[in-house]
Amino acid sequence: MDNNSWLILRDSDPAYKLPPDLAANDALGARDCGWVEQMRPFIRHFSPPAGMVIDPFNGFGTTLVAASLEGRRGIGVELEPARAAIAEERLRRLDARNQTVLAGDLVEVAASLPQADLVLTNAPYFGCRWQSAHDSDGQLYSASNYAGFLDMFYRVLKSLKPMLREGGYLIVMAENLRIGTHFVPMAWDLGRMLAEHFNLVDERILLYERPTAPLPALDAGSNRAHEYALIARNDRKPVDLQDSLRCLRELAADFPEVLVYGGFARWLAGQKAERLPSDVDLLVPERVDLLCQLVRWFEARGFQVTRWGQPFGWQAAGTALKGAHYFRAQRLRASGELCIFDVCFDDALLQYDEALRAAAQVDGLNVLPSARPPHSLRPESSTVVSSTQ
């Protein structure tokens, strides 16, 4: 792969296409099956020889076919049992070695997967009119509205974080859509979500040779002959620690109840760490009035405030934060300084009152630099997931 920002895909090798008899077994006629040629350059460039590639939306196993051809191990997770069966048969016919298809919900399966060097997938499209006898709350194709689709995708992204090794890449192929007469910026919305959990580092534009036709005057519609490869890495963004500290002191002066914990707290306390903090973690009481005031405070200082990657204003904070446990405030100055604050108000493992009692005063700040108090730990449930090989 070179440094061009685009990749032209001219044709799909018939030897690796999904066989027509297998495509006929799919509810959508496999019209959403991607090209092996689309995946191979990314596997070759972004994963080591014999590395592990995981596709969380396996579909017909296209990524696994590409992984086999590039000498990588592969695991594909597919929610739809019929598609998982088609993928397995396709891989069998191609004698694809070291490839595994798991039938199930990625969110449930994730904990049982080995760490990946590369997570590579085509994002399911919103509005494809999915019809299947297999009903599941996790089926993105079944989303009846766009907000629900984005919420489900966010759920998947969150589960991918621990299964991707540090420094590994997550690449999502996504396209902006037309639903009826509406333009839907799906690729850009998914990019914002990626940036919340990973370090979004670049993109490639994938170009397909498709027939062209004259466009009537004032008509904006295109032949949709491109999509985006959104490239993220599982590492920490370099934030400006001194600018973050200045902002934190201003915040604590106006909101003395905020408590600093996590990596930034350990840095403040002078504890040695393998890496510098990548954000400021704050714990605050779960009060709607306080959360609205905090959001307004950050907005007034040039921060963008998001919940699950979606921006919202302080006027909507009371509603937007229902069902969430934190919000993110991020500011990038024109001169390059980046500050990120994660404001948590519902930590499953740490109660605010307990944490405040255990906190120390560091330069006028409530700081909890130690590990979580043992008595605040709550048991986590475990899930046993079945798979097919």
Rank of each mutant, 00 (worst) to 15 (best):
L365K: 15
F264K: 02
A324D: 11
V305Y: 01
H375D: 14
P285D: 11
S335N: 09
A358I: 05
G323S: 09
G302F: 05
V258E: 04
D342R: 11
W267Q: 03
E274D: 13
D347F: 03
A348Q: 14
G309C: 04
G364Y: 07
A334Y: 05
G323Q: 11
G318T: 10
L350C: 04
R296W: 07
L321F: 02
S335A: 12
P369G: 01
F345P: 02
W267D: 08
R372T: 14
V280A: 02
G270K: 10
Q315F: 09
R301H: 02
G302W: 12
L259V: 11
Y326H: 14
G262C: 00
G263Q: 02
C339L: 13
R331V: 12
R307A: 14
N366F: 04
E274P: 06
Q351D: 14
A265N: 06
R372K: 13
Y326G: 02
W297G: 08
L282T: 04
A358Q: 09
P311K: 09
R275E: 12
L291E: 04
R331Q: 11
S335D: 14
D279H: 14
A269W: 01
N366Q: 09
D289G: 09
R372P: 03
A334I: 04
R357H: 08
A317D: 06
V362W: 01
A320H: 04
D346F: 07
R357I: 08
G364F: 03
A265S: 09
A316G: 00
L283S: 03
L268C: 02
V305S: 01
D353I: 12
D363C: 03
L368R: 05
Q310L: 13
V258Q: 00
L356F: 03
D289S: 14
G313Y: 12
L338A: 06
A273L: 11
H375C: 13
G313T: 14
S278C: 13
L356V: 12
C344D: 15
L291C: 04
D289N: 08
W314K: 00
P277D: 04
G309E: 06
A355V: 09
R275Q: 15
P373E: 01
P369Y: 05
L350D: 02
L294W: 05
A320L: 04
V367L: 10
V284L: 08
L368N: 08
R266C: 10
G309L: 04
Q304P: 02
R301Y: 01
V343P: 02
A358D: 09
S370R: 11
